[in-house]
Design a protein around this nucleic acid. Structure first.
Lengths: 175, 175
DNA sequence: ATATTAGCTTGCATTTTGCAAGCGACCTTG
DNA sequence: CAAGGTCGCTTGCAAAATGCAAGCTAATAT
């Protein structure tokens, strides 16, 4: 049940429409942070990551909410904070992000170790199931390591959570 | 073998790096046109589609080529024409586009009929195999219908090429 | 030779982005 | 309860990207 059309669309092609919502350099990064890094608040997005400007961040959060991809509600105990969360529509972006991740890791120099990516690519279904499970459970433990350039070649977060065990937390921490 | 870094990257995260290359409203549309619509030349991109401006189109083609996602070579018989083609790196974007397509069709009002999308989502592997086969064979027949807003609810292009015909590889193959 | 086509480039107005600073509501501390 | 810090934004302004129309060059068609 999509909202009302804000401006005229370029075409009826679903790819084009998706790109009108998400086709910029920041929106999907915010979704990623919500999805696999357990970030929730404005200042977390701002600080931990690629250094988005606050006005852009505010704008993107607004647009993502307007598009029904995220929801915003004030933290119960502390009314300064706003907790952002993916909607179902938002969590459904997991396959898109996963494929972008795999593609980038395969074809560019990234901070992601090869074995991690191979595991991801081999276990897509399982990874996606884990992402969704964490979303349902509101489990904020980071699923993926931070992939800093020059990270260790060993997998931490992923392989663990991909192994068909039950649930494991990966105290990735640190930024 | 990625090229030399043009500007400093925001982070080592593969998603972020992918978005630096593809995170705009046009790049992936060009890739889509090459991948499933059989378009090859500048004027085809310009005319058939969402109405990209010529300067932007020229710029994107240049950047996509610089990124190794497409290649350009003059048409043998007619030296005015330039034939663009996806590289292997480019065709590897198929899963990204497919997931974007499925997501958009599922969550927005698009011109894509539901049954077509269901088929796509159910037969991801087969669709991807077909995309790759067409790329290998340089088969320019459009794989998908145009998805104009208000299109007929029946599938044309897809279902035909998705029906288990002769050869289906499961393009598991590594690299 | 002339006209047409294809693939750009250029100039310029509009929009989006990035950066730094500021601001008000809310908490915490003394 | 006043001072100060935190949080989530706005605002102002410069820089970059985008969109639009026109033009320009080389290659082909007539």
């Amino acid at each position: 049940m999509p909202g009302k059309p804000k401006r005229r669309r370029r075409s009826g092609c679903p790819v084009s429409i998706s790109l009108e919502l998400l086709g910029d350099r920041w929106s999907l990064l915010i979704v990623r942070d919500l999805m696999v890094r357990g970030l929730r608040t404005f200042s977390e997005f701002q600080g931990a990551g690629e250094g988005i400007a606050t006005n852009i961040l505010a704008d993107r959060l607004q647009k993502l909410e307007a598009a029904g991809i995220i929801s915003a509600e004030p933290e119960p105990g502390d009314h300064r904070r706003v907790n952002y969360r993916l909607t179902e529509k938002g969590i459904d972006l997991a396959p898109v992000l996963l494929e972008l991740l795999i593609w980038g890791a395969r074809h560019e120099h990234t901070g992601a170790p090869c074995d991690v990516i191979l595991n991801l690519a081999k276990n897509r279904e399982h990874v996606l199931a884990e992402v969704r499970r964490r979303w349902l459970d509101r489990d904020p433990t980071p699923l993926l390591p931070w992939f800093v350039e020059g990270a260790k070649p060993t997998a931490e977060g992923i392989t663990a959570s991909m192994r068909p065990g039950k649930r494991q937390h990966q105290p990735q921490g640190g930024r």
